[in-house]
């Protein structure tokens, strides 16, 4: 592979290694991902000796959780060869709604309203993609603008009456137990297990993979893809709404563009975690590792004092590189 001079005489071993790596990555995709994560953690320690500590890990994990939830939206929609670009707008909107409503309605009702609106946006996405066959990329991009616009209208209508991010969200999103276990894991762990269970052990999960792998075969087997997509995007909307609560709690801000900057990293996390944009291939556990990898890289860059631009360049290159690598491994 890498310019070995006597490549011709050592063809067989080099082939065996390359093929061995391929088989490993194809059959146990988590091994190289966890390896990469460990490598990055080690790199952090080398760059700033002594930095790796329980508290450091807790802070990173706390930041990775809302990203991982948004990336769940991308994973489940990408399995059907779709994508959900409205998650940034929906998450911001849902956090903002709760912050502006909580003073009048109380926390529980504010949460219910925010999740209902998120679900409605998702359902519209799903009906557009499933019934009217608008490409999910266009459908969700359009809806993200609609949501942003509506959130702005809401902002103007409702001159802030002193209410802000509820304390409960700040505790859930920003606190650490014993200084190193993020409280948001209380929400995230059951949620992640539910997503993984749904993908692997339910009929709905099976249909997601099936529709992404071969829509024609799924149809001939009797699957009605519009039903699946409507429910899928609805779930994606609800997940984005939940992520919005954590984002607003983590940053203690309520803004209609709060989670926008997390949109592309959420796609990146899914792609790095091995989910194929062409559908039918991917796991949520891979995506979670992908989100952790991105968070560790961000931390390394900020500890080195590099500006935001460097992070963007690095993330962008990584997505392209990883997507190319996966294509080589999974085709042939």
């Amino acid at each position: 592979m890498s310019g070995v001079a006597d490549a011709t005489t050592t063809t067989r071993p080099s082939w065996m290694t390359a093929s061995g790596i391929r088989t490993l990555v194809r059959e146990h995709p988590m091994v190289p991902l966890v390896g990469l994560l460990a490598l990055l953690v080690a790199l952090s320690e080398v760059i700033r000796p002594g930095i790796v500590s329980p508290n450091w890990a807790g802070v990173l994990l706390r930041g990775a959780v809302p990203l991982a939830i948004l990336a769940a939206c991308q994973t489940i929609t990408m399995l059907t060869a779709g994508i959900d670009l409205s998650v940034g707008a929906v998450a911001s909107m849902s956090g903002f709604l709760v912050a502006t409503l909580v003073g009048d309605t109380g926390l529980v009702l504010a949460i219910v309203i925010a999740l209902a609106v998120s679900a409605l946006v998702g359902l519209v996405n799903g009906i557009g993609a499933g019934v009217f066959k608008v490409h999910p990329l266009i459908m969700t991009l359009g809806m993200s603008l609609v949501v942003l616009g509506l959130a702005n209208v809401w902002q103007v209508m409702r001159v802030q009456t002193g209410s802000g991010v509820p304390t409960e969200f700040r505790q859930l999103g920003a606190n650490l137990f014993f200084g190193f276990i993020p409280v948001n894991l209380l929400l995230f762990v059951p949620l992640a297990l539910l997503v993984i269970f749904t993908l692997n052990r339910t009929g709905f999960g099976r249909l997601l993979y099936a529709i992404g792998d071969n829509p024609v075969a799924s149809r001939l087997s009797g699957a009605k893809s519009w039903q699946v997509l409507a429910v899928l995007y609805l779930i994606s909307g609800v997940l984005a709404g939940i992520a919005g609560f954590l984002f607003s709690g983590l940053t203690n801000t309520a803004s209609v563009t709060l989670a926008d900057s997390a949109l592309l990293p959420s796609v990146a996390a899914a792609v790095i975690g091995g989910t194929s944009i062409f559908g039918g291939r991917g796991t949520y556990s891979g995506t979670i590792i992908g989100a952790l990898i991105l968070t560790v890289i961000s931390s390394i860059l900020s500890s080195l004092g590099y500006p935001e631009a460097v992070r963007q360049i690095l993330f962008g290159s990584m997505i392209v590189f990883v997507a190319a690598a996966y294509t080589r491994i999974t085709t042939d």
């Binding site: 269970f197 052990r201 339910t202 009929g203 709905f204 099976r206 249909l207 993979y209 099936a210 792998d213 071969n214 024609v216 075969a217 799924s218 001939l220 087997s221 009797g222 699957a223 009605k224 039903q227 429910v231 039918g280 291939r281």
Partner: peptide, 26 residues
Amino acid sequence: EALLMQRPVRDNIALPFSVRLRRWGP
């Protein structure tokens, strides 16, 4: 036109079991 090429044999055979709404669960 008939197969989920990236899925295992068993998933391909079991697909029709899961297509109806009330079979979307576990």
